[in-house]
């Protein structure tokens, strides 16, 4: 997308020249920039990615801090059956069921209304975002990146039996559709997870299962990058000054592929969030009355003709989060691309 800028003859040269002159006017050595800082500057220039990042930050902060706050906002009312006085801590809880206010429209009491079970939609949305982000962090942040780096770098650097095992395992995973595998495993072990970890059990199960299916792809990617990096002369050069293999991996290989992993991971997050949504949608994810964006969509399905907002709100939220991660990933990819050096 930003390549267009370089194709336009009128704007591109002047802009580049100006920047060039500005940099040259500085004292040499004072503007020494690391590749990371360069990339960061290029990223900041990508308005779409920065916008997505801001939006995502708002979503994350809201889900983490607005939910507890929301549970303190509102009057104390009497429960509609039983005449017990309850406060917002209860009726603004994402799991509280009040059958007398099913499908209520937005009001000062329930900011975005309630769903078929009388649960507060706003609270459920915030809780759902938390679930999506939790899955993203566990699956992509820990399993995808962690296992991917460890196995990818080792297989790429040392080759041999580990490389062969990784290749065969990856082939196996590729041959078997990831989502189908996840459906199978979550379906089989859902009850066990519920028994053992309570209502959150299925969520952990979903996270681990999705993680298992996604990391070989990352490992293969990291392996490829390691292979090409290994042949670079500076690796050989560092061996000639007596650097050990461990140090070469830590000092020379990891820092050089970290940016690429970063980009790949960001793009993986989108797919993972969608997959979690799908699993919840078909009832294999978070257990009601818990909340998840996919579960919310599923719950609204029966009432779509009458209360379309109940389906639109979680769908929109999911779309925005996924798009935001994709935009950020795109922006990072452009920022780290050595060919987009300016």
């Amino acid at each position: 997308m930003d390549t267009d800028r370089y194709l336009e003859p009128d704007t591109a040269p002047t802009q580049l020249t100006q920047e060039y002159l500005m940099e040259e006017s500085l004292e040499p050595g004072l503007h020494s920039t690391s590749p990371w800082r360069d990339s960061f500057r290029r990223f900041l220039r990508d308005k779409r990615a920065v916008g997505a990042l801001v939006l995502l930050a708002i979503f994350i902060l809201a889900s983490l801090f607005l939910l507890p706050i929301y549970e303190h906002i509102g009057p104390v009312i009497s429960e509609r059956h039983g005449f017990v006085h309850i406060g917002p801590a209860k009726y603004h809880s994402p799991t509280y069921v009040d059958n007398l206010v099913e499908n209520a429209p937005a009001s000062s009491l329930h900011w975005l209304g309630t769903n078929y079970a009388g649960q507060d939609i706003f609270a459920r949305l915030l809780a759902g975002i938390q679930v999506s982000l939790f899955v993203a962090v566990i699956v992509v942040g820990v399993m995808d990146v962690g296992l991917g780096i460890i196995f990818g770098v080792l297989a790429g650097y040392y080759g041999g039996i580990l490389d062969t095992l990784l290749a065969r395992f990856t082939d196996l995973i590729f041959a078997f559709p990831g989502l189908l595998f996840a459906v199978l495993v979550t379906g089989l072990f859902r009850q066990a997870a519920l028994d053992r970890f309570g209502n959150d059990g299925p969520l952990y199960l979903v996270a681990i299962t999705l993680g298992l299916t996604i990391w070989p792809q990352m490992a293969r990617y990291v392996r490829g990058q390691t292979l090409s990096l290994k042949e670079q002369q500076f690796i050989e050069a560092s061996r000639t000054i007596g650097t050990s293999s461990n140090q070469i991996i830590l000092r020379h290989i990891l820092p050089n592929i970290l940016s690429l992993i970063f980009v790949a991971a960001t793009l993986d997050i989108s797919g993972t969030i969608i997959n979690e949504g799908v699993l919840s949608l078909i009832g294999l994810g978070v257990q009601a009355p818990g909340s998840s964006l996919g579960l919310m969509i599923q719950e609204s399905l029966a009432n779509i003709p009458y209360f379309p907002m109940e389906a639109i709100l979680p769908s929109l939220t999911l779309t925005i989060i996924v798009l935001a991660f994709s935009f950020i990933g795109d922006g990072l990819r452009d920022a780290f691309d050595p060919r987009s050096k300016d």
Binding site: S32, S34, P35, W36, Q232, Q233, F234, E236, A237, S238, T240, I241, R251, H252, P255, N256
Partner: peptide, 17 residues
């Protein structure tokens, strides 16, 4: 014993000073 190589463009690690 030390060694220097043919291609100086790729002999240094791009991410370190």
């Amino acid at each position: 014993m030390a060694m220097i190589f043919q291609d100086p463009m790729t002999s240094l690690n791009p991410v370190f000073k």
